[in-house]
Design a protein around this nucleic acid. Structure first.
Lengths: 336, 336
DNA sequence: ACGAATCACTATAGCGGTAACTTTACGAAA
DNA sequence: TTTCGTAAAGTTACCGCTATAGTGATTCGT
């Protein structure tokens, strides 16, 4: 095994504690002793034992990140943001995949807490705060920040997009482009899905446009799942001439369905998504979308969590950050 | 803080050691005592302290996974596979992003080793085994498995695709489709890039087809980077009528360049990629590709690493697994 | 000149477990 | 009866590190 503080101490004829303090730059060690210790440490390739340190300090410098799906590039981007922020702070990020399953998620978070992570960031699959997960979280004193999805009744730290604004921005854009019959492929019944739907409705209402109930199709929200939803919309007697999709993967599926039906995008139907995933520009028709700065969401959440952790035991007053959305126009919606 | 073994022991009037043994199902504890301990543990919501346990057992049940880019869906898929295998075994997977930078990678792996992970899986950015990283890895006794990329001279555990076969499969397919002038957008100078290039050359040679030097363009290998490479190929006097691209993201960029030049895919130029990333079906032109079972690579590497870890100190003889590729034909190459 | 403060360092006591030995009790074998 | 074996505990000694409370020697204030 590698060198321990004890070895350095013996070699130098000082006490173990002197070594410990010297290595941590503690003030009551003379400059000369410190230098001797540091040199000897380097010679022996000493590496502090995090485990032992954690046992006594009760800090692991590990944080958990729980997301529903690594393959979804929104979450991959969030993860990247989180890592970029925490890395330089000396934290390790442990990513857990909940597979969009609330129970699995609760179980995973328990595992993380059992590992004594210093904090957790969660894109939660829970729809309501009255779920097992939150009982678990509140019992322990580990700080946590929710991202992207806000379960109803949730009062704690949160970082996400302004979903209603996203819905309005997208819908307004379609209206601007001259669309009269605008449909929506909605997402799951969690906050981003509902918020974007609200925004869609508000935008239509403001412009005095109709939003027939059957213009809101609820597909799923995974790869190509927009395909099924769009096919249903295409069968309506009054076919829509614009679709706002919950996110880019859904929009990609929608475009596939439209083209397959022999129609054109944006000519017959204009399409806009949300999320600006990295491959949006490469789709069948380059996809207009609402950028929500995914990696900024990750970074912001990381920063907030870091503050909570530093704040020692005193829980900070709940903070909510909503990142501003931005319209990105590409070919799929350009009609003028 | 939560309950410790000591609390259970005191409550039950037994020794700490009895509790420890009972909870781990040790044989020299009577069935009745064991039951009493387990019950009391449940009542107190006892959770074992991993940190303390790790300190003495020298096992953390954490493994590192180092990849160049989480956003690249190949690696996300690998990560998913790794997680799926290790989760049920009680391991936590810590993912580190090397950003394709060899030094950053070495640094990150050092951090992981400092954290006493039980093993590491690496999609390495190193091109040669004579690099700092391998000195570090060999000094410690932590087992590791390389995936996807094999640095020259590397002799240890490895799991990846059969790159030469991938190159041949793709190229043969283009030949089958009647392409006569087949170009290659090659990847970086690491094993998959070189292997696929070799496969491309062998396939052409076998069919007596020319492979002019300027038909091999080296772009990068990131999102849309195939775009630049393809533009160069389009300027050649003898324009290619088929392109095998290092991977799907490169192919996506290539298609973009081709369409932009007013040409058609696959009519004027057939395109095939490799990797079968999840959005390949949704691109401008649905992309033909070589599937390399990314998540199987992850799972296999995880299984291999788990074996190495279980094998206690005795290092296993180096094992290499090459996953078989599979042709997936979509529209981008269908000419018949 | 005498107590207080300062400096640079040390001794001790854990953190929450586990490994490796003992010990104890009790029935079976010699 | 004595010895022995075995089941079911208990003791002790760490794992590598940090927090806390000292220690002795020098410096300082009044």
């Amino acid at each position: 095994m590698s060198a321990r503080m004890k070895d350095i101490a013996q070699d130098l004829g000082v006490s173990l504690m002197t070594v410990s303090k010297a290595l941590r730059g503690h003030s009551d060690i003379s400059e000369e002793t410190r230098r001797r210790v540091v040199n000897r440490a380097r010679e022996l390739h000493y590496r502090p034992n995090w485990i032992a340190r954690s046992l006594v300090t009760r800090r692991t410098y590990m944080v958990g990140l729980v997301i529903p799906d690594l393959m979804h590039s929104f979450f991959a981007e969030v993860a990247k943001g989180v890592g970029r922020k925490f890395g330089p702070l000396g934290y390790q990020v442990v990513i857990s995949n909940s597979e969009e399953n609330p129970e699995a998620e609760a179980r995973q978070i328990e595992v993380l807490l059992d590992r004594n992570v210093d904090g957790v960031i969660i894109a939660s699959a829970q729809s309501h705060i009255r779920s097992e997960l939150f009982r678990i979280l509140e019992k322990r004193e580990t700080p946590y920040v929710l991202i992207d999805r806000m379960p109803t009744g949730f009062e704690g730290h949160y970082v996400g997009g302004r979903d209603e604004e996203i819905g309005m921005l997208a819908t307004n854009h379609l209206i601007d482009q001259g669309c009269k019959r605008i449909a929506h492929l909605r997402g799951p019944v969690i906050s981003p899905g509902s918020g974007r739907l609200r925004g869609y409705r508000r935008a239509l209402a403001k412009h005095g446009l109709d939003a027939p109930l059957d213009y809101v199709a609820s597909g799923l929200y995974e790869d190509g799942s927009g395909y099924e939803g769009m096919r249903k919309l295409l069968q309506l007697k009054k076919r829509p001439d614009g679709v706002f999709c919950y996110n880019d993967p859904v929009a990609a599926g929608a475009i596939k369905a439209i083209l397959e039906a022999g129609l054109t995008v944006p000519g017959d139907i204009a399409v806009i998504g949300a999320g600006n995933v990295h491959y949006s520009d490469l789709l069948r028709v380059p996809l207009s979308t609402i950028d929500q700065s995914s990696s900024v969401i990750g970074e912001t959440a990381a920063e907030l969590l870091a503050q909570c952790i530093e704040a020692a035991k005193k829980p900070l007053p709940p903070k909510r950050v909503f990142i501003a959305p931005r319209l990105v126009v590409r070919e799929s919606s350009r009609r003028k």
